[in-house]
Simulated scan of single mutants.
Amino acid sequence: MTQAFWQTKTLEQMTRSEWESLCDGCAKCCLHKFIDDENTTDETELMPTDHIGEDEQMNYSNIACYLLNDKTCQCTQYAKRTKLVPDCVQLTQDNLDDVFFMPPSCTYRRLKEGRGLPSWHPLLHKGKKSAMHKAGMSVRGKIVKDNEVDIDFFEDYIVTWPLNDID
């Protein structure tokens, strides 16, 4: 029996299509995240960042990007997402080490940490997401869209469920 590509290749060795197929489609990366920082001012509070300090803590919210289809957990404008939402990060083999905000259940993060694919991953279920949704590992049924809430009250939307990981 031959081993699957994710068992024989490093993330850096994967082809573009292998890399893309690793995304489990949970959409947790589409959630707004906030860094708890005492030095934040009113002007910088909701500004994007590309790092997190050792004394800072990242909080996930259940506020998702307005482009997210909350049933399929897919971006409705995937090809244009970084143009429509400049803060949207396209995860690649080159920036994986710098993307500190991926949740513990993210397959890219799991493989980088040597933990393998989770049992609910679509690649282990003929490409279907039903096991992931049933395990509660996606954002389905848990979110509000950023164009439907007042983001100034983000504290009211902070949640811990995106940090959940199983097996």
Rank of each mutant, 00 (worst) to 15 (best):
D36E: 10
K28R: 13
W6S: 00
W120R: 01
S130W: 04
W19D: 02
E54Q: 10
E20N: 06
S130C: 01
E18S: 03
V139T: 12
L163G: 02
A79I: 14
T76D: 12
D165H: 04
G141I: 04
S21D: 01
C106N: 07
F34Y: 08
E12F: 14
T10V: 04
Q13R: 00
R110G: 08
N59S: 05
L124D: 00
D50R: 10
A135S: 15
D42T: 06
T92H: 15
L124A: 00
E38P: 03
N147V: 04
E43F: 14
Q13W: 02
S17R: 05
Q93H: 11
Q74R: 13
V85A: 12
Q77W: 11
T2S: 08
L67P: 02
V149T: 12
E43K: 10
C23W: 09
T92C: 11
K71A: 09
K80F: 14
E148Y: 08
T76M: 09
S61L: 05
L67W: 14
S21Q: 03
E56W: 03
R110K: 13
C106S: 05
G136N: 01
C88S: 11
E45W: 15
V89G: 11
D165N: 05
E18P: 06
G53Q: 09
S119Y: 13
K80H: 13
E54S: 09
A27W: 08
C88D: 10
Q74I: 09
